[in-house]
Structures are given as structure tokens and as C-alpha cells.
Simulated assay, not measured.
Amino acid sequence: MHRPHALTWVACFLYASVLIAGLAVASTAPVDPVRLCAFAGAVLVAGALEIAEWRGPATRAVALAGLVVRTAVYAVITVLDGSGNAKVLFVLLPLTAYFTVGHRVAYTLAGGGLLLAGAVVIGRPALRQDPEALSDLLMFAIGIVFALAIAVIAEREETGRRRAETLLTELSDAHARLREYADQAVTLATVAERTRVARDIHDSVGHHLVVIAIQLEKSAAYRTVDTDTADRALAEGRRSARLALDEVRRAVGTLRADDTQFTLGCSLRALAARLHDPGFAVTLDLTGSEDTVGEPVRLALYLAAQEALTNARRHSGATAVAVRVDLTPTTGVLDIADNGTGFAPGTAEGQGLGGMRERLDLVGGEVRITSTSRGTRLLVTIPVVAR
């Protein structure tokens, strides 16, 4: 067990008190010098033993040997002491044992010491009738009880201090981990926000830029053949440019969000009208009520349709695309099929399809894409949460 430093100082204080009291009594009456020197030497040996155990290794064997040596030294000091105060030193035995060899040994020494002292006093008629002897026995018992009570209090205080230090260390470690987790959360949030911004730019601004490029190419191709068609394509390109500018402003927060509710049917019709031309026919079939699905689901379906139609217009070589949307109280379904050349299985998905899957994951949806040499089909299914 841990030996507190205060135990050494208490023991040395008692040794010094007994030594001073013994020397004071010796100065008032003739005393054998040899006996006095032996008395002082025994007290000094007891003090040296305390200091040696304080600085030495705290093993159980050493502690037990120290208790035996102390008992012998205290007996010698008591015999040589002319003041009669050395008996108080035996109180140190259970007190020291409590911290060095354990509670049981301390309680055994305390009980054994009290029984032995009581037997000596009661067993001798002269001491039994001596008020001073009875008073010494009572004070010895009080001293034993007081010493053990102080030991229990000191042990609990030491245990509480160590527990507080342990908790403080654990709290510091937890604080460090929490700070590390907070840094990781900030990093993940930053990455997630960058991914969201990139996805939004691709799905909104990127789409409008693709439409602008298509309409400008169409205007240039029809300029010498059909000026009306070329002018309409150029006007549509300007409109897409303004929409792209609005999206950019909304993305950087310079415009307030529009309070009007997003309408899937109107948005899909406008999308189909922008992409429809004689070489790329877009048909739209929308069934069900938009009131059965929430706006996040409607927006996810629209962005998936926008990505699929843009890809079909740019890469598939298709001349016709059929878009079917079915909104029910349980699911929102988007089915897009074209008559293009398709693509080979295992082809790496671009950022657009990756962003589509991420958006659908956010609302619990899934997408399946099948492609052959006769065309490509994209099927999106999103479960509808009860509103």
C-alpha cells in the first residue's frame, strides 16, 4: 500500500516529544547517564527507522520486519523512559500497519494491544487500584481508536485524490478526442459541402450550359436554312444563359430562395421543350398527383430526368426519348427510354450519374440503367414517406 508522507512526520513528532519529555524529567533528578544515553539512542533509532522506510522500497516483507523492530524499540524506549510517556509510541504500530501491510494486520495489532494492556492492568491488583494506570489504559484505547480513524480518513482522502486525478486524466483524454472528432467533423462537413456545391453546379448550371451549347449549334446550323428556327434556338440559348446566371446567384446567396413551391410537371415540360427539336423528339407522360410526394422527392426526380435527357441529347445519338413519371402515395417512379446506340456495360460513370446516385441516396431512392445497341433505359424508384 501507499505510505503517506504525513505518517513519517507524525511518528517523528511523537519521537521528538517523548525524547524531550524524557530529557526534561532527567534534568530534574539524578539519572544514570548510561541509561539516559541508551534512551536517547533508542529514540534516534526509531526515527532513523521511519526515515529509512519512507525512502526505501515499500515491500510487504520489509514492512512486517519494520513492525517487529519497532515493537522491540518501543519496548526498550518504554523501559528506559523516566517520564512514562513512551507508552504512546505503541499507538503508531496499528497506524503504520494500516498503510504498509493492510487493514487486517492493523486491526489485529490494535485489538491485541488493547487486550494485552487491559490484561496487564486488570491482572495486577496494584495497577487495577491505581487511577493513573486506569487513566493510561483509557487514553491508550482512545489513542488507538483515534489513530485508526485518522488512517481511514486519510486513506479515503488519498483514494478520492487518486480517483480525481484519474478522472481528470480521462477527461483531458476525452477532451482531446472530442477536439479531434470535431476537427474530423469539420473536415467531413467541408468535404460534404464541396461535394454538394459541385453536384448542384453540375446539375443546374452545367445543364443550362449544355442547353446553351446545343441551341447555339442549332442556331448556327439553321442560320442559312431556316432563319426562324435559328432565331428561336438563339432565343432559347439566351433564356438558358439567364437561368444559369440565376442559379449562380442563388448558389452564392445573393438571391433569396423562391417561396413558390417546386412543381415537377411544369419543370419537366419546360425541360422537354428546351431539348425538343426535329432531330431529338421528347415525349412526356406524367400520371398521379404531385400532392402525394414531398418536394425533395419531386426535385430528385426532376434532376435525374434532367441528367438523363442531357446525356441522351449529347452522347446517345438518339432521335426520340420517352419520359414517363408515375407518382403514387407509396413511390415516385421515373422511367426514361431512348432509341440511341447505348453504351458498353462496365463503362465508368461520369460525374453526372455519380451525382444522381448521391442525390437519390439522400431520399432513399435507387436507379437502374440498362443499355443495348437499340437504346438505353433509366429507371428511378423513390419510396414516398408519409406526409
Rank of each mutant, 00 (worst) to 15 (best):
L334Q: 05
R359I: 03
D338V: 07
A305G: 05
Q306D: 07
L303I: 03
R324M: 07
L360A: 07
H315L: 13
A320R: 14
R357E: 04
A304K: 01
A344W: 08
Y302N: 05
V363F: 09
V321H: 09
D335W: 14
D361N: 11
G332A: 15
L301C: 01
T331M: 06
A344D: 12
D338H: 11
L362S: 10
R314F: 10
I336M: 15
G352I: 02
G354V: 10
E358C: 03
L303F: 05
G352P: 01
A320D: 06
T310H: 06
E349N: 10
L360R: 08
L334W: 02
R359H: 04
N311V: 01
V323G: 06
G350M: 06
A318I: 05
E358K: 10
Y302T: 02
G332D: 01
N339V: 04
G364A: 12
S316F: 06
V333Q: 06
A337V: 12
G340S: 13
R357P: 00
V323W: 09
P329S: 14
E358H: 11
A318M: 07
E366A: 15
T328I: 03
G355F: 12
R313S: 08
E366M: 11
H315D: 10
A305W: 02
Q351V: 09
D335T: 07
T328S: 15
P345K: 12
T341M: 13
A305H: 05
G346P: 01
T310L: 05
G342V: 09
Q306T: 10
L309R: 05
A318H: 06
R359T: 02
E358R: 14
R324D: 09
H315S: 11
H315G: 08
D361T: 08
V363E: 08
Y302V: 02
H315I: 04
H315K: 11
T330I: 03
D335Y: 14
R314M: 14
L301H: 00
D326K: 14
R324G: 07
A320I: 00
A308N: 03
M356L: 14
L362M: 12
L360T: 01
G355H: 14
G340V: 07
A305R: 04
E349G: 12
T310G: 14
T319P: 02
R314L: 15
V323Q: 05
G332R: 06
G342A: 13
M356Q: 07
D361C: 06
L301R: 00
D335H: 15
A312T: 11
F343D: 05
T347D: 09
L303E: 09
